[in-house]
Amino acid sequence: MNLTYEEAILELEKILDELESDDCTLKESIEKFKRGVILYNHCKDLISKAEGEIKILLEDEENTKEETFSMEV
């Protein structure tokens, strides 16, 4: 799924509104529910990803390289 977190949340909210409105058939409701669960899982994945990297750019004659940055306390 390529949706960003915000796009996925927006769609999830739309689904909640539609489900709440009572206008859909049982089959449509189940379809929407399934889509909602997919969106929920997608969002959860996006925010529970592994820790991001902290890098610092170092320059030495013409070359820039990225090195892991650690904070000296």
Binding site: I47, S48, A50, G52, K55, I56, L57, F69
Partner: peptide
Amino acid sequence: IITIIKRRFPPCNILIYP
């Protein structure tokens, strides 16, 4: 900056240009 970003949103990557 690093401490707060890591606390609020761990998956975020940071690139420092010193």
